[in-house]
């Protein structure tokens, strides 16, 4: 069976690409420290020597729209074009083309449906920065085949937080039951406290540093009990109006397992939002 060689949860900050590639006067003062942290984070994936990446993210009203909105969707295609005109425009993100791992997509869809998740699927999916940001930070060669999994953290009504956790737990079981010798890393991105298009946006740090601190502790300690006690669809409005993206972190806590401490934890307090990086090695840290 396949093995999960790394579970990685991260924020996806669309400004990283531009900040890290800028030079001279255009280079922001925080770029060097940010780049150092990303290179160290990248090493946690490189060391695991993955063959395939399962990528959990969320479409930001690019391909998925309110006339036909899935809650959870699995891509099943041989290729995925990536990034959109408005992401080039606002963030300077490059167009990309990623390979798909269709066999694992099909396995996740079949086993997920049989496990009680009525997963939507797409055979032609153009992915956005929720998945390309971690490709850029963690595997900039973009050479590994992927299975994209989109969650709806964006367009209410949303699934409950516990459903994200349950899906993560199922993804863990499903990937580990994939009849393959390949080494799989499961990577998911979300947000800590975040405000977009509201009065608390683009502050000197994230809109709710206290929430961020608690959230990092929940994730680092795998404290799903406390996290599920504290986090509801209603409560997530308070830290910032885009904080429902935290539910993708909860999904990744489900993949990593309740009570399992992360093997690698790092954060970076930036303007606008806090960056956070976590890696678990389910089979022990690679040597």
């Amino acid at each position: 069976m396949a093995s999960i060689v790394a579970v990685i949860a991260s924020t996806h900050h669309p400004f990283y690409y531009r900040a890290s590639t800028a030079t001279g006067e255009d280079r922001p003062p925080f770029a060097d420290e940010w780049t150092r942290k990303i290179l160290a984070f990248r090493e946690t994936l490189t060391r695991a020597r993955p063959d395939v990446l399962v990528m959990v993210g969320s479409d930001h009203f690019h391909q998925l729209w309110l006339d036909n909105m899935p809650q959870f969707l699995v891509g099943k295609a041989p290729h995925y074009d990536a990034n959109w005109y408005n992401e080039e425009r606002e963030f300077g993100l490059p167009r990309m083309l990623l390979k798909g791992q269709e066999d694992l997509s099909g396995h996740i869809l079949r086993a997920g449906l049989d496990a009680g998740f009525d997963l939507a699927f797409s055979n032609e999916l153009r992915i956005d920065h929720s998945i390309t940001c971690p490709i850029i930070t963690l595997r900039p060669e973009a050479d590994l085949p992927i299975v994209p999994i989109y969650t709806n953290i964006f367009a209410p009504p949303l699934p409950q937080p516990k459903r994200f956790v349950q899906l993560g737990q199922s993804i863990r079981d499903i990937v580990e039951s994939w009849p393959s010798h390949l080494r799989v890393a499961v990577i998911g991105t979300g947000h800590l406290s975040l405000e977009l298009g509201g009065p608390r946006q683009f502050g000197p740090h994230g809109p709710d540093p206290e929430f961020d601190q608690r959230a990092v502790e929940w994730i680092a300690n795998g404290d799903l009990d406390e996290c599920l006690r504290e986090v509801t669809l209603d409560s997530l409005h308070s830290p910032g109006n885009a904080t429902h993206g935290f539910m993708d972190f909860m999904l990744m806590m489900g993949v990593a397992g309740a009570g399992v401490k992360a093997d690698y934890v790092d954060t970076l307090d930036l303007f606008h939002t806090m960056e956070a990086y976590f890696t678990w090695y389910p089979n022990g840290a690679p040597t």
Partner: peptide, 22 residues
């Protein structure tokens, strides 16, 4: 209106007039 949609479009409309970042 969805604040992400409004923000994204309005940044496209008016960010070009910035005299300093953000």
């Amino acid at each position: 209106a969805h604040p992400f949609l409004t923000l994204t479009l309005f940044i496209a409309l008016f960010e070009r007039d910035n005299t300093e970042p953000l």
